[in-house]
Every structure is written in C-alpha cells, then in structure tokens.
Design a protein around this nucleic acid. Structure first.
Lengths: 132, 132
DNA sequence: AGCTTGCATCGACAAACGTCGATCCAACAG
DNA sequence: CTGTTGGATCGACGTTTGTCGATGCAAGCT
C-alpha cells in the first residue's frame, strides 16, 4: 500500500510561512490547492475526522464504510484521494486495511492558514453584514 | 455589496474544537467542506493570498485581474466564490471595488486543523513511504 | 482445491466546476 | 446626455468530480 502512482504533495515546498503574509507563487498554490481540494468534500472531511480522532491512531476500513450511506467503492475512492493528498496513509494487515492520519500535512495546513502572531488586522473590525 | 444571496457559512457551528479530536457531524462537515472547497483552486488560493498579504488590508480588483492569465469574468467568479465562503468581503468605492480578508474564517480553519496541544501522535513516527 | 470476505480498480454517467465571450450595470468624464 | 471604464452577471461548453454496479485481487476458511 501507499506505493501507487500517488503523487503525494508531501513537500508542499517547505518554505512559505503562510498564505496570509506574502502572495503565493503559482506552483505553491497548485500544490496547496490539491490538499485543500481533498478536504473540500463532506464525506472526506468526516472520513479524515474519524481516522484522526481514533484512539489507537488507526481505523479499519470495515469500521468506516458502514458509517455512511454510500457504496463501498465510493468510500474507497475518497480514501484514495485523501491518501494522494498526503493526509493519511494505510497498510494491509491480514484481511483488513488500516488507515491513519499523517499529522505533518494537517500541521502544515494549519500553519499556512495561521495569522503570524499579532497581525494588525487593518482597522476593519468584523463587519460581516453590517450594512452600514 | 456583500448582500447578495451569499449563503456565507459564517457560523460553521461555533462548537467543534477540531477535525482531529472527534468525528465530525454531517452538518458540520458540509459547512466546513464549502470553505475548504473554496480553497481548493490555485487561482483562488493566490487571490486570497494577494488580498490577505496586502499592506493596507485591502486590494482593488483592478490590481488583481492583471496578475493572472485569465479573463476578467473568471477572476470575478473566483472572487465571488471566496466571498460566498466567508473568506473575504468587498465594497465599492467610486469606480473601483476593494476586497479584504475576513480573518475570522482563516482563524477558524487553522483551529479546526490544529492538533490539540500534545496529541500523543500514536507511536507511528512519519513513515511516508517506508515500505517496511 | 474451492468458497467467502474485505477492499481496490474499472468503466459509465449525471452533476458540478472552470473558463470564455457577450452583455449589463454603476460611476465618472466630456 | 453621450461615451468610457471597472466589474458583475449571463449562457455556453469542455473538463473534472462523485457516485454506482461489476469485476478483480488478496487473505483466510473449509
């Protein structure tokens, strides 16, 4: 497992301290977008959440599939996308396949979205529909 | 502006301390996925980055459009999606329209992806292709 | 050897997405 | 009022995505 064509971004370019500090380069944007796109589906978010929050650190697919109203191939497909995004990895153990989180990737995303310390927050409070 | 059908998620459900601590509920997953999907495109990531990293805190569309090899309607479309996701907002000032970041949303995402303090990290080091 | 079970892969197909040119609207300049 | 410019909205069109049933493969059971 984890050895298919899987073009795992992996090294989203160690650089770039964040989206919010400097304009992203086109290549970095492409790599980052792959990962965010993987998170852009409710099923995949729930799968990732179920995997990440598991006590032992890993989950058997046989525990994931019945949690959704979707066919087994569909769940398998979503797991594949999460794996190709570098968010999870898996291993076959006997009859079953186990998935676990790769925290490096979620850490990286959190860092990319984080606002660098005391960013001034330009003067504009939080007018989300104030209709001044 | 900022007053169209724009079903801004906004309150992705103040709860949920993170994706990684407990299985996400279906509704929360749907809301979160909308925002991540908005980030799942290289153009939108670069737009957001250009807007967020701007000194004055806001950018005129006329500064954004020429930075890409895309038509003006396409850029406008991407900006609309970012706005509907609650990531940015805009205002018309005279002839020009200015966009700025809504840091609440990026903060929320960063929080959702963050690993709660000293999460054990189950024993599995970081085998990204160890092929044991 | 056969059968069964757990998952992945393979088309297929409808829905969603990214892009464009054309058009429309708001604001300013003559 | 007329013309111009910045930007949003409107179809249209090709590509990608999410889903399925059918099939393939690996591992255990009898």
């Amino acid at each position: 497992m984890s050895k298919q064509e899987a073009e795992v971004p992996g090294e989203v370019d160690a650089c770039c301290p964040g989206l919010l500090t400097a304009p992203l380069h086109a290549d970095q944007a492409v790599e980052l977008a792959k990962v965010f796109k993987a998170l852009g589906d409710p099923i995949r978010l729930r799968l990732l959440s179920m995997i990440a929050s598991r006590a032992g650190g890993e989950v058997c697919v046989c525990d994931l599939t019945p949690a959704f109203d979707l066919s087994q191939p569909t769940i398998s497909h979503h797991l594949k996308l999460l794996r190709q995004a570098g968010l999870i990895d898996c291993e076959r153990r006997g009859t079953w396949v186990y998935y676990w989180l790769l925290p490096e990737m979620t850490d990286r995303l959190a860092g990319v979205l984080a606002r660098p310390a005391g960013q001034p927050l330009p003067e504009r409070p939080a007018e989300a529909g104030v209709a001044s």
